[in-house]
Lab assay of single mutants.
Amino acid sequence: QGDIVVALYPYDGIHPDDLSFKKGEKMKVLEEHGEWWKAKSLLTKKEGFIPSNYVAKLN
Rank of each mutant, 00 (worst) to 15 (best):
residue 1 Q to L: 14
residue 2 G to T: 11
residue 2 G to S: 12
residue 4 I to L: 09
residue 4 I to Q: 04
residue 4 I to F: 08
residue 5 V to A: 06
residue 7 A to W: 01
residue 8 L to A: 03
residue 8 L to V: 07
residue 8 L to Q: 05
residue 9 Y to R: 14
residue 10 P to A: 14
residue 10 P to S: 15
residue 11 Y to C: 05
residue 11 Y to G: 01
residue 11 Y to F: 13
residue 12 D to K: 14
residue 13 G to L: 03
residue 13 G to S: 11
residue 14 I to A: 10
residue 14 I to P: 07
residue 14 I to N: 09
residue 14 I to V: 13
residue 14 I to R: 12
residue 15 H to W: 11
residue 16 P to L: 08
residue 16 P to F: 08
residue 17 D to Y: 14
residue 18 D to P: 02
residue 18 D to W: 10
residue 19 L to N: 01
residue 20 S to A: 08
residue 21 F to N: 02
residue 21 F to H: 00
residue 21 F to Q: 01
residue 22 K to E: 10
residue 24 G to K: 03
residue 24 G to Q: 03
residue 24 G to R: 03
residue 25 E to Q: 03
residue 25 E to T: 02
residue 25 E to H: 03
residue 26 K to M: 15
residue 26 K to Q: 11
residue 26 K to Y: 15
residue 26 K to D: 02
residue 27 M to N: 00
residue 27 M to H: 02
residue 27 M to E: 00
residue 28 K to D: 04
residue 28 K to Y: 14
residue 28 K to P: 00
residue 30 L to S: 05
residue 30 L to D: 03
residue 30 L to F: 07
residue 31 E to Q: 10
residue 31 E to H: 08
residue 32 E to Y: 15
residue 32 E to A: 15
residue 32 E to D: 14
residue 33 H to R: 11
residue 33 H to N: 12
residue 33 H to G: 10
residue 33 H to I: 10
residue 33 H to W: 10
residue 34 G to V: 04
residue 34 G to S: 06
residue 34 G to R: 06
residue 35 E to D: 12
residue 36 W to C: 08
residue 36 W to R: 15
residue 36 W to F: 12
residue 37 W to P: 05
residue 37 W to H: 09
residue 38 K to F: 15
residue 38 K to I: 11
residue 38 K to T: 06
residue 39 A to V: 15
residue 40 K to F: 12
residue 40 K to Y: 13
residue 40 K to D: 01
residue 40 K to C: 13
residue 41 S to Y: 03
residue 42 L to E: 06
residue 43 L to D: 10
residue 43 L to E: 09
residue 43 L to R: 12
residue 43 L to T: 11
residue 43 L to W: 14
residue 44 T to R: 03
residue 44 T to H: 04
residue 44 T to I: 01
residue 44 T to G: 03
residue 44 T to N: 07
residue 45 K to L: 15
residue 46 K to V: 06
residue 46 K to D: 07
residue 46 K to P: 00
residue 47 E to C: 11
residue 48 G to D: 00
residue 48 G to Y: 01
residue 49 F to I: 08
residue 49 F to E: 03
residue 50 I to F: 06
residue 51 P to R: 05
residue 51 P to W: 04
residue 52 S to K: 15
residue 53 N to H: 13
residue 54 Y to T: 04
residue 54 Y to L: 12
residue 54 Y to V: 04
residue 55 V to I: 06
residue 55 V to C: 08
residue 55 V to R: 00
residue 56 A to I: 15
residue 57 K to V: 12
residue 57 K to S: 09
residue 57 K to M: 09
residue 57 K to Y: 14
residue 58 L to Y: 11
residue 58 L to W: 12
residue 58 L to A: 07
residue 58 L to I: 13
residue 58 L to M: 10
